[in-house]
Computed example of a mutant assay.
Amino acid sequence: MITIKSEQEIRMMHEAGKQVAALHKEIAKIIRPGITTLQIDAFAEQFMTQIGATPEQKGFNGYRFATCASINDEICHGFPNERPLQDGDIVTIDFVINLNGSLADSAWTYAVGSISEEAHRLMEITKQSMYKGIEQALIGNRLGDIGQAIQSFVEPTGFSVVRDFCGHGVGPTLHEDPQVPHYGKAGTGLRLKEGMVITIEPMVNTGGWHAKMDLNDWTARTVDGSLSAQYEHTVAITANGPLILTAQD
């Protein structure tokens, strides 16, 4: 079911989004070689508690953590763990804040120490592709316009767009329709309407796009062991164009 949000509901989601952005900025300050993703998870949950919010994904279908932490070849839904991050790693931290019943969702990929040129390029291309998709989040456009904008930007670089996972509607529940693929054909798919709120969250690999699941039935990683990055914003479809509810600037 697709829910259309009122202006008041979008304002409330924007307040949650501002806290998501603030937490990402704080995480950027503590990412370093030697820290564990379990420590980052505890830091994130404490931040949420202090602002009177809760981690929406904790308990979702039995998920145990406040964040997802996906390292190197992990595409998404990595479990925070006690492995110290190493110089040269990249790690995606993904979380959803529930602030007074309003949700906001964002993932960001972070460099750990000094990373390779390939990893840096992957991060930049992935982030740019997200914004290419957001530019198409306009009233009257279709979901295929978002996917095509991302795919046509990424694939000429030699990287690939993950197809097994996609963006989604969000609020009042964590995952709602519509599904938002990050590949596709312009002019196809559901037409966007004012008041929709969706996530645009491309996952991009340096190798092939295929994914495989870990034994925990949550964590997806690249089949070929290549690096993967992800950037995600929560975006409202408005009469004034796309409104990024989780913007960090």
Score class of each variant (00 low, 15 high):
Ala119Asn: 11
His120Ile: 00
Arg121Phe: 07
Arg121Thr: 04
Leu122Gln: 08
Met123Glu: 01
Met123Gln: 04
Met123Cys: 13
Met123Ala: 05
Glu124His: 13
Glu124Leu: 14
Ile125Ser: 01
Ile125Val: 15
Ile125Tyr: 01
Thr126Arg: 04
Thr126Tyr: 05
Gln128Ala: 10
Ser129Thr: 04
Met130Ser: 01
Gly133Phe: 12
Ile134Glu: 01
Glu135Lys: 14
Glu135Arg: 14
Glu135Asn: 11
Gln136Leu: 02
Gln136Thr: 03
Ala137Gly: 10
Ala137Tyr: 02
Ala137Arg: 01
Leu138Thr: 04
Leu138Asn: 04
Ile139Lys: 14
Ile139Tyr: 14
Gly140Leu: 10
Arg142Glu: 07
Leu143Cys: 08
Gly144Glu: 11
Asp145Pro: 13
Ile146Phe: 10
Ile146Arg: 09
Ala149Cys: 10
Ile150Ala: 00
Gln151Val: 03
Gln151Arg: 06
Ser152His: 09
Ser152Arg: 06
Glu155Gly: 05
Pro156Ile: 08
Thr157Arg: 06
Thr157Lys: 08
Gly158Gln: 09
Phe159Thr: 00
Ser160Lys: 03
Val162Asn: 02
Val162Phe: 01
Asp164Ile: 07
Asp164Cys: 09
Asp164Ala: 15
Phe165His: 10
Cys166Phe: 10
Cys166Gln: 08
Gly167Ile: 10
Val170Asn: 04
Val170Gln: 03
Val170Ile: 15
Gly171Gln: 13
Pro172Ala: 06
Thr173Gln: 13
Leu174Ile: 11
His175Thr: 14
Asp177Pro: 01
Asp177Tyr: 04
Pro178Trp: 06
Pro178Cys: 08
Gln179Ile: 09
Gln179Ser: 07
Val180Asn: 10
His182Leu: 07
Tyr183Lys: 05
Ala186Asn: 12
Gly187Trp: 15
Gly189Tyr: 13
Arg191Ala: 07
Leu192Ile: 07
Glu194Met: 02
Gly195Glu: 09
Gly195Cys: 10
Met196Arg: 05
Val197Asp: 07
Val197Gly: 04
Glu201Gln: 14
Met203Ser: 09
Val204Ala: 01
Asn205Trp: 00
Thr206Asp: 08
Gly208Tyr: 12
Trp209Arg: 10
His210Asp: 15
